[in-house]
């Protein structure tokens, strides 16, 4: 039972982290690059995108999860279970990833971008060869943070029948007064978070050349 719940949590978090990264990375890049003085300066795109992302981030996850049930059904074909939980988890994580990517990109010294421009690099070359490689350690840490947050969110998803460790903790640990199961799920969650964080830190350290 515990094992199955752990697998469910890992599946939810794993898939939603990957999908949110794939969607959030370009958005974050677009946010950073359209900012004033950057390579694709465009204040209209920047402001609109920024506003949309802020709206996304201000909706509490538990509300978001319920609110997008029709969308979830459209994507996952169902609105309950682990598969369905992945959709709201991803939707919640995309704006979060975008903001983290934006700040990671903005950390890069503008002089490096200027140097690339002086060599005749195109915006796309700058993104691919300067911004992403230079921000890579920070991006890895951003994804680590996202994954850790999603582990927390996934427990909430459990509350509405999403499966996973949160589900187990509520149904058995809380509703059936099984203190031992509650303790075990919490312990597993702690270990998961620790493991993800340590792995992320380690990868970032390997990439860090500064």
């Amino acid at each position: 039972m515990l094992w199955q719940a752990t697998v469910e949590t890992l599946t939810m978090v794993g898939i939603s982290t990957v999908v949110a990264s794939v969607l959030g990375l370009p958005l974050g890049l677009l946010l950073a690059c359209t900012d004033q003085g950057h390579i694709l300066e465009n204040s209209f795109v920047n402001k609109v995108l920024g506003a949309v992302i802020n709206v996304g981030r201000s909706i509490p996850f538990i509300i978001l999860m319920v609110a997008i049930i029709p969308f979830t059904r459209l994507i996952a074909g169902t609105s309950i279970g682990t598969k369905a939980a992945i959709v709201p988890l991803t939707v919640a994580a995309v704006p979060f990833v975008a903001r983290l990517v934006e700040s990671a990109i903005k950390e890069i010294d503008s002089g490096v971008v200027e140097a690339a421009l002086s060599m005749g690099a195109s915006p796309w070359q700058i993104i691919a060869k300067v911004l992403i490689p230079e921000a890579l350690p920070a991006l890895v840490l951003a994804l680590t943070l996202t994954a850790v947050n999603l582990i927390g969110y996934s427990a909430m998803a459990g509350a509405v029948g999403g499966g996973g460790l949160g589900d187990l903790a509520i149904r058995f640990g809380y509703q059936r007064f099984r203190g031992d199961i509650m303790l075990q799920t919490v312990a597993i969650l702690v270990v998961l978070v620790q493991a993800v964080q340590m792995l992320g830190d380690w990868i970032a350290r390997q990439l860090y050349k500064r």
Partner: peptide, 18 residues
């Protein structure tokens, strides 16, 4: 294209740390 014919160096070097 023209910029490729003009090299530039900087006070703070601006090298790619990665």
């Amino acid at each position: 294209q023209e910029r490729k014919k003009i090299g530039m160096i900087f006070q703070h070097f601006n090298l790619l740390s990665s």
